[in-house]
Computed example of a mutant assay.
Amino acid sequence: MPRKPTKGYWVRGHFVAYGSEEDSELKRAAKWDADLSKTDLKKRSAHLQAVGEQLLTLKPSLLQGLDLPPSLREALAEAKRIDDFEGRRRQLQYVGKLMRQLDDALVATIEATLAEQHRASAAQTERLHAAEHWRERLVADDAALDAWRELEPDADWQRLRALIRQARKDAQVHPDPAPGQAQRKGRAWRELFQHVRAVLDAHESPSTVARP
């Protein structure tokens, strides 16, 4: 019994089967063509390409939480493995193509997840800067301990004072370096930073870790 021919249509000399992935993409593109200008389409395509590339920077735990098609997950994994510049560029173009096949709801979810990671990263950077500022002030000014009590009222004050005194001694032993040389810091300087950072990280609101 002869096999029933596949139904479809021809596009620029290429046969497209009804119901295929390519058919869905062409229909979606046709809808965009009806609703959007060519400039809008180019901007949207470039945006989705960029979002697809940003997925490569997403933490594994956040990436796992996204309901991505298997083909896109495989394409992203392959892009991470490719070292060759041209090969990686072509693979990222393929990632962009797959991104254009996603529905708007999933794209919005991806963008929200990327924004969530960005906010977390920005908050962490802010805490690092605050920790550096607190350390410098604690070493430079005894009165800074009074302000620090608001953040760590139950601190081991004897240990903290000893750590600050040692950090000051380290700064005297290792003065400011000559131009072009890295400044050497002692163990107490690093431990003081780690202590301050741990306390600041324990606070949920960024406003509570603002620089003094």
Rank of each mutant, 00 (worst) to 15 (best):
A140M: 00
L128E: 10
Q183K: 15
Q93M: 12
A130I: 11
E116T: 13
S20N: 01
A171N: 06
D84T: 07
E78A: 08
K7E: 14
R184Y: 06
V173M: 06
A108R: 11
R73T: 13
Q117H: 01
R81T: 08
L151I: 13
A30M: 11
R168P: 03
T208I: 10
R28V: 06
S205T: 05
R44V: 00
K27Y: 08
E86W: 06
A75Y: 07
L92T: 05
A202Q: 10
G186Q: 06
Q101G: 15
S207Y: 08
L200E: 02
E116W: 02
K43Q: 13
A105L: 12
E126K: 14
L41V: 08
R149A: 10
A105M: 06
F85D: 12
L48D: 07
L55Q: 03
E78T: 13
V209K: 06
K42T: 01
A143W: 03
A162D: 04
L151K: 14
G8S: 12
Q194T: 14
A77N: 08
D154Q: 15
D201M: 14
R3N: 09
L114Q: 12
A210N: 06
Y18V: 13
E22Y: 08
R12I: 05
S207W: 09
V196T: 10
R127G: 03
P206W: 04
G13Q: 01
A34M: 02
W32N: 13
E22C: 03
A77C: 03
V209N: 07
A144F: 01
L48Q: 10
